[in-house]
Design a protein around this nucleic acid. Sequence first.
DNA 1: TTCATAACTTACTTTTCGTAACTTACTATA
DNA 2: TATAGTAAGTTACGAAAAGTAAGTTATGAA
Lengths: 101, 101
Amino acid sequence: MKETALCPRLSKAMDLIGKRWVGLILYELLEGPKRFNEIESSLPISGRLLSERLKELEKEGLVERQVYTEVPVRVEYSLTEMGLSLKGAIDAIEIWSKRWL
Amino acid sequence: MKETALCPRLSKAMDLIGKRWVGLILYELLEGPKRFNEIESSLPISGRLLSERLKELEKEGLVERQVYTEVPVRVEYSLTEMGLSLKGAIDAIEIWSKRWL
DNA sequence: TTCATAACTTACTTTTCGTAACTTACTATA
DNA sequence: TATAGTAAGTTACGAAAAGTAAGTTATGAA
């Protein structure tokens, strides 16, 4: 890994968002809070990775995890304000995709 | 890989943009045409991957490659209209990064 | 006692990355 | 003639990340 003059914040943003599945996970959560299985069945992602990604996103502050101790347990994931404020970027990508792909 | 009801265009867009380094490569090229070595030294990416990514982006129509047969040879990469029109998305990510990271 | 469910977790294979050395083509210099 | 320098890659290989499938935990219902 080299030294660069690149803005570290942009670099980190691209690292977060540019990680596989993250864009689509955020896209799903922009519709509202969702359960683990809901996200898993909306996307072609495996449970292993979904679990890993949600943990990262929670740690970075984009996603919140809420556990409901029902039987069986229910766990809901939702966007924080930080996560929600990526809506503009995700929307822009969606619009672009409809025009160019 | 599972079946999904996910929009294939959004899915493909996220695949393209969400691939490692692609966001930052596009960001660099939004400043204007750049040579291989210029991009390589602006980003912490190796020649191997940069070469691979530029080929993909060219194949997908986001980037154009122009060879100038000087000595030594000069190769410039620039965004196509398709590539340029991702500016909105990249800008949104940059703005988000300045606010939240 | 067995089954079912949600949300993970583990074990294992395949793919992608990161690093560094090497290649090609041509010119300038000793 | 031999050597060195430069841009733009390419190759080889070990390390890290992703994909797949089976297993785990907790609880209540049949």
